[in-house]
């Protein structure tokens, strides 16, 4: 820790009492350390500037409102504010992926092509074909309910009306259809994933 002629605590006190030059001294004294810390986390000059600015806005407001009570620990306190703002920045980034043009960036790393490639399309077709064959093996009443629900997207109420059984029976048949399908899949070690 450097031995400054005027301690941080004294400068903070002077600033709270209205000496604006004290803030200038504090910023000059610690700007490199705080900025480097922020940059070491975000690796972006513009973001570092923003976070540095927000950090000191917080510092200024806290001091002027008389809420500061950590005398003698000015730098660790400012570093903690900066650290929290860096975390906030990354949280925001997670919610909204950002486009950064740093020369090495490829837009395709964040935007993926929703279409399947040829290989995946073939696998998907095979999986669907296998599944259709398995469904054919189910008892007629279960097959009927499953096809109506999954392929025709009908509600259980509609299935119940169409087949003339109660909703509970239709639900039960769907349940057994799925249980039976799982049993056959497990028994024959069928892989139904793309």
């Amino acid at each position: 820790m450097k031995d400054y002629t005027i301690k941080d605590a004294v400068l903070v006190n002077n600033y709270i009492k209205g000496d604006e030059n004290a803030l200038s001294t504090l910023i000059e004294r610690h700007k490199q350390r705080i900025y480097s810390f922020i940059y070491s986390k975000v690796f972006d000059r513009d973001v570092s500037e923003d976070i540095f600015q927000d950090t000191f806005i917080k510092v200024i407001r806290t001091l002027k409102l008389g809420k500061y009570n950590e005398e003698g620990k000015f730098l660790p306190w400012v570093m903690r504010i900066a650290h929290n703002l860096v975390i906030d920045h990354f949280r925001k980034g997670n919610r909204m992926p950002k486009f950064e043009d740093n020369g090495e960036f490829s837009i395709f790393s964040i935007i993926s092509d929703g279409d399947l490639n040829a290989e995946k399309r073939i696998i998907k077709d095979q999986v669907e074909e296998d599944l259709r064959n398995l469904i054919q093996e189910l008892p007629e009443d279960q097959k009927e309910v499953l096809v109506m629900r999954m392929y025709r997207d009908m509600s259980f109420k509609e299935i119940s009306d169409k087949t003339g059984v109660s909703i509970n029976t239709a639900l039960g048949r769907m349940r057994y259809a799925l249980i039976n399908l799982r049993k056959v899949i497990e028994k024959n070690n069928i892989v139904l994933t793309n």
């Binding site: 803030l23 700007k31 490199q32 570092s48 500037e49 540095f52 600015q53 200024i60």
Partner: peptide, 11 residues
Amino acid sequence: LVPTKTTVDFL
């Protein structure tokens, strides 16, 4: 690695 003069002046 230091903030720009503009940022410091703004503060």
